[in-house]
Every structure is written in C-alpha cells, then in structure tokens.
Design a protein around this nucleic acid. Structure first.
Lengths: 188, 188
DNA sequence: CCTTATATAGACCGTTCTATCTAAATATGA
DNA sequence: TCATATTTAGATAGAACGGTCTATATAAGG
C-alpha cells in the first residue's frame, strides 16, 4: 500500500527541514514536494509548529530504536561499545549534515519554548541511554563517564558534517577507545 | 567615542542572529534594535547575506585572537592545553547557546554556498590551530591527535548549551586529559 | 562657509509567509 | 447504493520579508 498522505508529509517535511532549515522551509514548498495540497497538511497538523514537533518526535523515535536494537543484542560488557557503533552508523546513514535536534534548538530557542524543549529532551534521552549502557557494562563506578562519552558523540555528530563520516567516525572511535581504556586501566 | 553605526549594526546583528537564528531575524528587527534606520544598514552592507558574512568573519576573528593570545604565552609543551582552556573560556563567555558557525552551516547549507563555505572555513581554521598547537608541543607524531581533539572541542561546544558550562567544561577536560595521557604513555 | 558624506524618515515594490475558507471531487466502507 | 471522510482546487487574509527610492536633515573637514 502507498504511504498515507500524513506519512508522505512527515517524510518530506523531515527531509526539507533537515536540509534547508526550519524557518527557511515554507509550507508551500513542503506540500508541493509531497505532492499534496495545503489543506491536506492543515487537516493532519494544526500548524507548522505541530508539524515540526511531529517530525522531531518521529525522527527521535527511529534514532532511539536503532540504538536500542544494537545494545539489546550486545554481548555482556559491550553495551557501551555497541551503542557507540550504532550511533556512528546512524550518523553515517541519516545525519551527515549535522544533528536536526541541534538545528531545532538553534532556530527555536527564542521562538518556541515547546520545540526547544522537545529537542533538548531528545538530547537528554540520548544521555540517559548512554548512562544505561554504561551501567549495564558495570562501568558506572567511574563518575561522569557517560557524560564524557556524550560529549564525544556530540562532537562526532558535528564533525561528520565537516570531515566526512570516514574520518570523523574513525577519530571518534579513537577518542572513545582512549576513554574506555583509561577506565579499564583504573578498574582492571 | 561612541561606536560607529556600522559597529552597532554588527554587534546587534550578531546577538540577534545568534539568539534567534538567521532566517528568523529580519532586517527590520536588527535596525530597530540597533537604533538605526534601514537605509543605514544598506549603506554599510550590500545585502542581508553580506551582513551575515561580516558578522561571521568578525566573530571568528575575535575567537581566533583569543585562542592565539592563550597559546602564544603558553609555556613550552603546553600549547595544546592552553588552547583547550582558552576554547573553554570562549564557550563560557560567548558561546553558551551553541556554535554560531554550526548554526550558519545548518541554515545556509542549501541556501548560500558562500555563507556555508565561510562557516566551514572557520571550523577548518580551528582544526588548523589545533594542529599547530599539537605540533608546537611535539605531539604530531601521534597521527590524528589534532582531529581527535577537534572532535572533543566540537562536542564541548554543543554540550555547553545542554548541560551548562560547569559540567560540560569539566567533562571536556576529562576527555582531553585521557587523550593526552594516552599519547604521553605511548611516547614518554 | 561650503562641500561632501552620512543618517533619517517614510513611502513603496513585489514576494513570500502562515493560515483559513468554500465548494467540488474522490475514495472508503457499511 | 448511500453516507462519511478525505482530498483537491483555488481564492483570500493579513503580516512580514528583503530591498529600493526620494527628500530632508545632520555632521565633519577643508
């Protein structure tokens, strides 16, 4: 079956928002690219802001699902590495031009408290997943390790857009390895 | 002497662009906030795009100057650490809501090749300064160290906006220390 | 003093923006 | 078949957008 108009709109809006920015992408361009008329959009979403919120939520749900799938099947003691690898794969496949949540925070910080909070919550959720993986691996004796991993993954995200996935992910892996090696040498 | 109208415009535009985003900040709001009339802006800048370019260049020049000042007076072998510290001070003082260059890349990627290139060049310049500091400290035998430091500083930038400067800079320092310690243990 | 540059005030242009409305067409399902 | 949603087409609203124009005023420097 063909995708519903609503799904077409979500997918098209996500692509345009991500590539062109939120404020720079008008309703008319979205509906035209989705092959739909403007009233169809307003039939499914109350406003542009509601559409942005739906786009961010859908994308975050997919992102988290791909992380969870990877850590769930990781061998004991390797959840953290599995999460880092899954994060890298996501960047390579779906986030080669920077993080859509970071973009949303930048554009809506003083413009929509709801959207800014939504994007910030997505980032907080990622940090929570890192903390869970670290705890699963029994590494949570190391205070702040999850936050340090978070800093690196955030840097990885923006660096992919600058140096390409090959270089960025390899460098990211180098930093992560140094972090984990330091922890393991302190708690052998 | 009071700041020139041009400088008022640059400072006001930088603040508004940084806080509200580029596309979301209109010419009228800039001139109103700067206490100036619209034609004064167009007398000094050919277009909004030219104004954005001038803002980015001026900000980058200030950023680089503060890094250079710190590394120049660093004791031998400590240029890298001095650069990292100076970077952290910049974030704390002037970049608490994310990186303006990252925002510009996100908003202009498919909208202005010139502005996108300008912001990307600023990022490349930062990487070059890191490479220079690493070389000055005689650490450039470690392949990719500068790029790894770059990844961490990029992550630091976005994390400051999420967790606050105190936590973010402390975590950043933790990652940097692990990286440098690993290098020094391999080349004592 | 007089010239030249800079700034002001404000009208104006065409375009785009988000959002709403109505009326006709098209599916969908009972 | 008939009733109910959904989608389409297109007009319309009011505001904001970037940018230009003219005419007036205000400094600053020779």
């Amino acid at each position: 079956m063909p995708a519903s108009k609503r799904d077409q709109l979500l997918a098209t809006a996500e692509r345009l928002f991500y590539e062109q920015g939120f404020h720079a992408t008008g309703i008319d361009r979205i509906v035209a690219a989705a092959g739909v008329v403007r009233m169809t959009l307003y039939n499914h979403f109350a406003s542009k802001e509601a559409l942005v919120a739906a786009v961010l939520q859908a994308r975050h749900a997919r992102f988290i699902a791909s992380l969870e799938a990877a850590t769930a099947k990781a061998p004991p003691g390797h959840a953290t590495e599995a999460l880092v690898d899954a994060h890298g794969r996501w960047l390579e496949l779906h986030s080669r031009h920077g993080c859509i949540m970071a973009k949303a925070m930048g554009e809506f910080a003083e413009h929509s408290a709801e959207l800014h909070a939504l994007a910030a919550a997505a980032k907080a959720d990622l940090l929570a997943r890192i903390e869970a993986a670290v705890a699963r691996d029994g590494l949570d004796h190391e205070d702040g390790l999850a936050r340090r991993l978070f800093v690196v993954l955030e840097g990885s995200n923006t660096t992919v857009a600058l140096l390409g996935p090959q270089t960025a992910l390899s460098d990211t892996r180098g930093v992560i390895d140094a972090l984990l090696a330091a922890v393991r040498s302190r708690h052998p």
